[in-house]
């Protein structure tokens, strides 16, 4: 996969970096998964665990930063190696953000489950989270296999996530209009949905970084965003009867 250097220690260091990235990725995936599970199953204990786990990701990012800087200083890498190292710094920053977003969802668990909400409220959020997590998983799988030709799916998934988010936005707005008592939990859920949608964006960022690491080119420019929530006002969201 990678060219062999005369100094095998350098290879070891690069390998270690990618291994740490993968470990961070696994951790971030697990955090988001558990944060959503805590929300859906009304489990504040699990939410607390997610909040504590974020420390591991912060630590991971610091370690990768340090290691990467040391490698650059010591080995003066060029071309692929340099892209690999800079890419690692960028991916670890994205993963750390994914962890933060997961933590933010977990923090809202207590507020949302305060009054027991109907499960239908969470179903859309769960579906949205599944889409975002699938995207993250596929992107990290590409990081393992380096088969960037398959990276086109990322754009499609992003569209799906945006469409789902728009739909969820409308639904939550409708609930709030139906009954003012829904406003507190629905606002929190709206933030949760936004956080999860952001996870999809970070996954797309990671995909672009991987594309850059492997090919040396930037991914072709993104199409215009299709998240339409900026156009949803009150009258448009009134239920059509």
């Amino acid at each position: 996969m990678q060219s062999v250097h005369t100094m095998s220690a350098f290879d070891e260091e690069l390998k270690y970096l990618s291994k740490r990235i993968a470990a961070m990725g696994g951790h971030a995936e697990r955090m988001v998964e558990q944060a959503v599970a805590a929300l859906v199953n009304a489990d504040p204990g699990l939410a607390q665990k997610v909040i504590r786990d974020d420390l591991v990701l912060d630590e991971g990012q610091r370690e990768i930063d340090d290691k990467a800087i040391i490698i650059i200083a010591k080995r003066q890498p060029m071309a692929t190696d340099l892209r690999e190292i800079v890419g690692a710094i960028r991916i670890s920053a994205d993963l750390e953000r994914v962890g933060d977003l997961g933590k933010n969802v977990a923090k809202r668990v207590v507020a949302v489950i305060d009054g027991r909400q109907p499960t239908s409220l969470f179903r859309g959020l769960e579906a949205l989270a599944n889409l975002a997590l699938t995207q993250l998983k596929e992107v990290l799988d590409v990081y393992a296999s380096r088969s960037v030709d398959k990276i086109g799916f990322v754009r499609d998934r992003d569209d799906q996530i945006d469409a789902m988010y728009t739909s969820l936005f409308r639904e939550l707005l409708t609930y709030m209009m139906e009954d003012p008592r829904n406003i507190t939990p629905c606002t929190h859920l709206l933030f949760c949905a936004k956080n999860i949608e952001r996870i999809g964006d970070h996954a797309t960022n990671i995909a672009e970084t991987i594309y850059y690491i492997v090919t040396g080119d930037q991914m072709p420019p993104d199409r215009p965003k299709s998240d339409k929530t900026d156009k949803i006002g009150l009258p448009a969201a009134l239920p059509v009867k």
């Binding site: 996969m1 291994k19 993968a22 696994g26 951790h27 990290l140 799988d141 393992a144 088969s147």
Partner: peptide, 16 residues
């Protein structure tokens, strides 16, 4: 799927 010889195992199975 997506596991070919040469791929690093901890990159594919990332769960803690």
């Amino acid at each position: 799927g997506g596991i070919a010889p040469g791929i690093s195992l901890p990159l594919k199975f990332r769960a803690p």
